[in-house]
């Protein structure tokens, strides 16, 4: 039984508390609203683009932000989708995402690798790590198109699992500087080169999001990037899920203890002057940005 009412439970929290569908919806939405409020993810007159992939995380963010702010005329929402050109995956996400946005009257911008870089991801990944190539190019396009859309913030579907995995991956790779750029909101306020990223699902687990998305009818069909299983992240995901099964609350502990040290990490991170890529003029920590370096490796025109 649900801990709050005499209905069948749909979710068991790591504390052992069981919740029925209605109580689970209330729990989920309250926790997301709290994250938005506590970390000031959305402020008055914000223009927000939501990075959508068509998966459960990004569509849940879009749906929740839409429901919270649909009556608020001072906050505008747009959706931004990157079509990497992954056969059997991305092409199948586009039509449902268009329908989802149309039903809510949210403008959707679709940007493709094919148009931007003259290739599909599938054409260039042979013998390479697909996620490394794709991640750099996708992040670059999200930032540049968020600027073109003239939004103040870019919302993403990053969740508790993603964040716990990234924290551990950065530790394992001795890349602690990269962890200083994590957290529910990243980026620099009012900087012409960057659009701030916000993560409203920061404290929600992947399982909670899937349960919510399924029960709300946000997603029904399974879709997973075919390159996902090859990734280092996937191995860390499995390791953390095994720990979570043995020691419930592990992922929450990783992220909440990380939040305690994040201010110190950010302070320690050198605040060097932002440079601009000598090739594409986008912001970069090096003379040539990661996107241009990847395109150079691929030996393709920029």
């Amino acid at each position: 039984m649900c801990n709050n009412c005499p209905k069948n439970p749909v979710y068991k929290l790591h504390s052992g508390e069981q919740l029925c569908q209605n109580c689970f919806f209330k729990y989920f939405e309250k926790k997301v609203r709290k994250t938005i409020r506590v970390y000031k993810l959305v402020e008055k007159k914000d223009e927000i683009a939501v990075a959508v992939s068509g998966g459960k995380d990004s569509l849940t963010v879009l749906d929740i932000l839409y429901n919270i702010y649909k009556e608020n005329k001072k906050i505008t929402l747009k959706a931004l989708m990157i079509d990497e050109g992954i056969k059997g995956y991305r092409n199948e996400c586009i039509a449902p995402t268009k329908k989802f946005c149309k039903e809510r009257k949210i403008p959707l911008e679709i940007v493709s690798y094919k148009k931007e870089f003259s290739f599909d991801l599938d054409q260039v990944v042979k013998g390479r790590k697909p996620c490394s190539v794709c991640g750099v190019l996708r992040r670059s396009l999200l930032n540049s198109y968020a600027k073109k859309l003239q939004v103040k913030k870019l919302a993403t579907g990053h969740n508790l699992d993603d964040e716990a995995q990234t924290i551990i991956m950065n530790q394992f790779r001795k890349n602690i500087g990269a962890s200083a750029r994590l957290g529910p909101m990243t980026g620099i306020e009012d900087h012409e080169a960057f659009v701030r990223r916000i993560k409203p699902l920061y404290f929600m687990s992947e399982k909670e999001i899937m349960t919510y998305a399924f029960l709300k009818g946000i997603v029904r069909e399974f879709n997973e990037c075919p390159y996902n299983k090859e990734s280092y992240r996937n191995q860390v995901r499995e390791m953390l899920n095994n720990f979570e099964e043995l020691y419930p609350g592990t992922k929450h502990s990783i992220v909440s203890s990380f939040m305690e040290i994040l201010p110190a990490l950010q302070k320690q991170e050198k605040k060097g002057k932002i440079k601009y890529c000598m090739k594409c003029k986008e912001p970069s920590s090096q003379d040539v940005c990661q996107k241009c370096a990847v395109l150079e490796q691929l030996k393709l025109p920029q």
Binding site: P9, V10, D57, Y89, I209, L215, F222, N223, R237
Partner: peptide, 25 residues
């Protein structure tokens, strides 16, 4: 058609689906 918790006792005529929570990439 309904999400259940791990304590749910299975019945003979139940239609069971397991959905992966992994999506995207």
């Amino acid at each position: 058609g309904m999400v259940v918790t791990e304590e749910y006792a299975l019945k003979t005529k139940d239609k069971i689906k397991i959905l992966s929570v992994v999506s995207g990439g």
